[in-house]
């Protein structure tokens, strides 16, 4: 492909500059000495120090992490079960409703999900806190997990499972020893997706949380509503760094896994052919 290439290079350069420049600026100004975020007054890491001494931020970070680990783990179990049901269970009464309930939360505006869950918790007289946020996050992220896992299950060769069952494995053993190792990458990416969705969520957490369970996004939101703050820049930089390291590591691992799998498949082909 020639000809258009100048156009392509320009659009890619401008496009990626647009995607990354705002975040680069955020990182840059987090090392700014001045409180006025846009006036450069020399290099300093003092905002990081202030951030790490701020007990409220540390508390919020701890709450957020707790909620994210709990909700993404429960969501992964429930989402994998739901995916299994969607792909394997065949017909059963209420199947249409079930798949509707899996897909609807994906397009539901967060304000509505949050409002409806809050009204439920109030109706049942449940004290709001970490527990209710975990319930709320689990509910919407299990749907994302089940979409990710079911797309992997749909391409999965069922004969392998049947072979295990014929050889005397119990259904649970067949799932644990045959199915799970094969769908594991999808389950892991489902968990990661649920984890980041939970870390990121402001709206649903704001509705369903209670006193003593302020999450980091809620804290950030109330801080930046009034304007730019260097402490939030420092916090954002830390979060961007963690995500970048995580995503790059995950993609390297999955790349290595894919290469190994391709090699094994080739070896298998050669052995059978």
């Amino acid at each position: 492909m020639r000809g258009f290439s100048w156009f392509n290079v320009t659009s890619l350069t401008l496009g990626f500059a647009f995607l990354y420049l705002p975040m680069i600026l955020l990182v840059f100004y987090s090392f700014n000495e001045s409180r006025l975020v846009t006036v450069w007054a020399g290099f300093s890491t003092k905002w990081y120090g202030e951030l790490l001494r701020d007990a409220e931020f540390l508390d919020a970070a701890w709450v957020t992490l707790k909620v994210a680990v709990l909700s993404s783990t429960i969501a992964t179990v429930l989402g994998t079960m739901a995916a299994h049901v969607l792909i394997r269970a065949g017909r059963f009464p209420g199947r249409t409703l079930f798949s509707g309930m899996i897909y609807a939360p994906l397009v539901m505006p967060e304000v509505i999900t949050g409002l409806s869950l809050l009204l439920l918790f109030i109706g049942l007289n449940i004290d709001r806190g970490v527990f209710t946020v975990v319930l709320a996050h689990t509910t919407f992220s299990m749907c994302y997990v089940s979409v990710v896992v079911s797309s992997r299950l749909a391409t999965f060769d069922r004969a392998l499972e049947e072979a295990a069952l014929d050889l005397g494995a119990s259904p649970f053993q067949a799932f644990r020893l045959v199915t799970l190792p094969i769908i594991a990458p999808a389950v892991i990416s489902g968990w990661l997706l649920a984890f980041t969705l939970s870390l990121d969520d402001l709206v649903i957490a704001s509705f369903t949380t209670g006193p003593g369970a302020t999450t980091l996004p809620i804290k950030i939101f109330s801080a930046v509503r009034l304007g730019v703050s260097p402490q939030i820049n420092a916090l954002s930089t830390l979060m961007i760094a963690i995500v970048a390291v995580g995503v790059i590591t995950a993609s390297l691992i999955s790349k290595r896994g894919a290469i190994r799998q391709a090699r094994e498949e080739q070896a298998g082909l050669r052995a059978t052919g």
Binding site: P22, M23, P217, I220, V224
Partner: peptide, 20 residues
């Protein structure tokens, strides 16, 4: 990966970055 990477970073922070 460069297109997907921002998706993994906090939505709130990406919006906030434009305030500055």
């Amino acid at each position: 990966m460069l297109v997907i990477l921002p998706f993994w970073t906090s939505f709130l922070i990406r919006v906030y970055s434009w305030m500055g």
